Computed example of a mutant assay.
Amino acid sequence: MTELPRGYWCECWTEDLTSQAEQPTLHASFDAYSAHQADRWVAVALRTITPALDTSACDEAWAWLYEERAETRRALLRSEPCTVTVTHTTTRITWTIRPVLFLPLSHRRGRELPACTYDFKPRTTD
């Protein structure tokens, strides 16, 4: 029996704090195969957006980058899920990292898609 590859599923969500009806919105996801890849994905995103953040959110971002990132990595190595959050004005930005087992696609050979792929019909609007 083949052991399934372990890794981390990473997501980036935003939430408008002024709207009680609005649900969080998923903006990005990433499959990381190491704790280093997972926390680096968040670090690159934070470094990229910090120039556009307000002072408080920027401080939160740099606090995680310089003080809390190492603890995040240790938690991931213990297979614990992690969350990194910054709040910019009325928007909460949250990155989640969860340990996962990656399941291989069955019947996948090179570029050939599984036979069941052709069973699905395009979605139409009425």
Rank of each mutant, 00 (worst) to 15 (best):
T96V: 02
P81D: 01
V44R: 12
R123P: 02
V100M: 12
A28T: 01
I49F: 10
V86A: 08
A43I: 00
T87R: 14
E3P: 09
F30R: 09
L53V: 12
C116A: 15
D59Y: 09
L105D: 12
L46I: 07
H36S: 11
L26M: 04
V86G: 06
L46G: 02
P114L: 05
L4V: 08
E112D: 10
P114F: 06
A63K: 13
E3R: 15
L101W: 09
H27G: 04
D126M: 02
L65Q: 07
A21K: 05
K121C: 15
A61D: 03
R78K: 12
Q37C: 06
A38N: 04
E68I: 01
L103P: 00
L46R: 03
P81L: 03
V84M: 09
C10N: 08
Q20Y: 04
F102G: 05
E60G: 08
A35W: 01
D59A: 15
Q20P: 00
K121I: 14
H107N: 09
V44G: 03
Q37S: 10
W41I: 03
S56Y: 10
P51F: 09
T83V: 11
A38Q: 01
C116V: 13
Q20H: 08
R92Y: 03
R74K: 12
R111K: 09
C82E: 13
L53E: 03
S29R: 11
L46C: 07
I97L: 10
L46F: 03
I97H: 02
L103C: 11
W9G: 08
P122V: 05
W95G: 03
T91M: 12
T87I: 15
R108Y: 04
L76P: 00
E22S: 11
A38P: 02
A70H: 03
R74L: 09
Y8V: 05
Y66N: 13
L101C: 09
R123N: 11
R40K: 12
A38R: 04
Q37T: 02
A115G: 02
P99V: 01
S19G: 00
D54C: 13
E15R: 15
G110E: 06
R108W: 09
T55V: 13
T89V: 14
P122N: 08
R73C: 00
W62G: 03
T89P: 00
L46N: 03
T48S: 12
L77Y: 00
Y66H: 12
D31Y: 05
R109E: 14
Q20R: 07
V42W: 08
D16K: 04
D54K: 10
V86T: 12
R108I: 07
A61H: 02
L105P: 05
A63T: 15
I49C: 12
